[in-house]
Amino acid sequence: MNEAEFLAKWQSEEAIYRAWGSFVQEEIERTLQSTSPSVDLQSFLKIPPQPRLKAVDSLIGKAFHRGKPYQDPYADIEDKVGLRFIVLLTADILKLKDVIEASDRWSWSLDKDFEADRDSRPMEFAYQSKHYVLKAASDTQTAGLVVPKGTPCEIQLRTLLQHAHSELTHDNIYKRDPGTEITKKIERTVAKSMALIEAVDDFFAQVLDELEKSSEAERNALTDLSQLYVQHVGRTAHVDKSNAIVLHAFRDQLGNTFRPRLEALLAGKPFIAERIRDRFESQYTFRQAWILLAYLVVSEIPNVTAERWPLTVQEIEPVFTDMGKTIT
């Protein structure tokens, strides 16, 4: 295959590669969402992923002019379309890894080319990004096209910090001049920054871990609230940000006794679930899981509730009224 044939083939298949890239992206996002419903994709993916086709010049250069020992350059170049997923923590990368490796829509391998390339790019010495090549497991219909079995797509998984580091040390920015004093100094500094990135990633993970632990009671309570809401009200409660605010304000009321207390209240005063059901359609507050907590604290500690209530008085007043109390 000469350059002209290569180019002609690429131009005829470009749209298929683009479609395959989009398919892979949607499949990964969809699976991630269904396996981890608590993940908010928009904040989980720090830079919105976008399938990127390799530029023609770059393709030709890689195929014919970099002295790579390709048997069949067109087939052997596996990053003709690529996707990059950038997340906050290395733990997040593991989530993506699980999703990618579990799918039956493609076969996966770690990018040999990348491994090899890395040897030729010593500047990225501690570069930890994970590169996959996904090949369509069968002919795949998408966006009105058929993506033939075996069509590759390269996936890069990086943390934000790795991404920053990688951008800095990218060939385009940094022109090497091996052996000079200045290069050694720069390499040393880049090495230090990579070490720092690893340390920071550890610290980030530690912070999140401690945050998780400290909010464990709140998260458990939210699960209890959601379950009891479905059970008693017969609808699915909404769980927006106001829930975290309300739960946080009354976190000393949560813990082991929380669920039994709430169950006793709802069993003893069945009208509570009825009043919530009445207002489900018309009032935002009564669709939130925290409304059950509101009934509990108004019934047990009305004065403390009035003092600590983190949202507006209008939102808690109907609960006081239902419980025969007044906000003082």
Binding site: R279, T321, K325, T326
Partner: peptide, 19 residues
């Protein structure tokens, strides 16, 4: 309606729970 009824209930409850 529901809102007006809630307000009327609130008047009565607020009064009767007046300290």
């Amino acid at each position: 309606d529901l809102e007006a009824m809630d307000a009327l209930r609130n008047r009565v409850v607020a009064a009767m729970s007046s300290p």
